[in-house]
Amino acid sequence: MIEHIVPQRYQGVWRRTLLTAPEVYDDRTLVLWMQTARWHADLRIPADRPDCSGCTSLAECSRAQLLCLLKQEGFAGITTVNGTSCEWRRQMDYHPKGWRDRGEMAFSTCTRALDEYGIEADYAERWERDPASDQSGWVARSSSAAGPVLWLRSGKRFMLARPRAMDATETLAIWSRASANRASIEELRRLADFEISYGVITGDDGCILHSTLPWRELQSVVLPKNWSIDCAVGDLASGACLG
Results as ranks from 00 to 15, higher is better:
D27R: 09
G77W: 04
E128F: 06
C68P: 00
Q91P: 04
T171F: 00
R177E: 10
L160R: 14
E23N: 15
S57F: 00
I78K: 11
L66S: 10
R63V: 09
H40V: 03
A140G: 05
V222Y: 02
M105N: 04
Q65R: 02
A47N: 08
L152I: 03
D235V: 08
D101I: 04
K71M: 11
I201L: 07
E128D: 07
E3N: 09
R162F: 01
Q219P: 05
T111M: 10
Y10H: 12
Q219C: 13
D115Y: 07
R153M: 11
V31H: 03
E120D: 14
R38G: 13
R49M: 13
A173W: 02
E60W: 07
D115C: 12
K156V: 14
Y117R: 14
S176W: 04
M159T: 12
I174R: 06
G118Q: 02
E186S: 11
G98Y: 04
D93L: 05
T80L: 09
R100K: 12
L236E: 12
M34L: 15
L18N: 06
P214H: 08
R177A: 10
V31S: 06
S62P: 04
H95A: 13
D130S: 11
H95D: 10
A106Q: 13
H210I: 01
R90F: 02
I78L: 13
E187K: 05
T109P: 06
L32V: 11
Y123K: 06
P7N: 11
T84W: 11
G98A: 03
E187M: 03
L152M: 09
H210V: 03
V31R: 04
G118W: 03
M34R: 02
E186C: 02
I45F: 08
G74T: 09
W39F: 08
S238G: 08
E87M: 12
A41G: 14
L160K: 10
I174W: 05
Y123C: 06
D26I: 08
A47K: 12
I5L: 14
A183S: 12
R90E: 09
A113K: 08
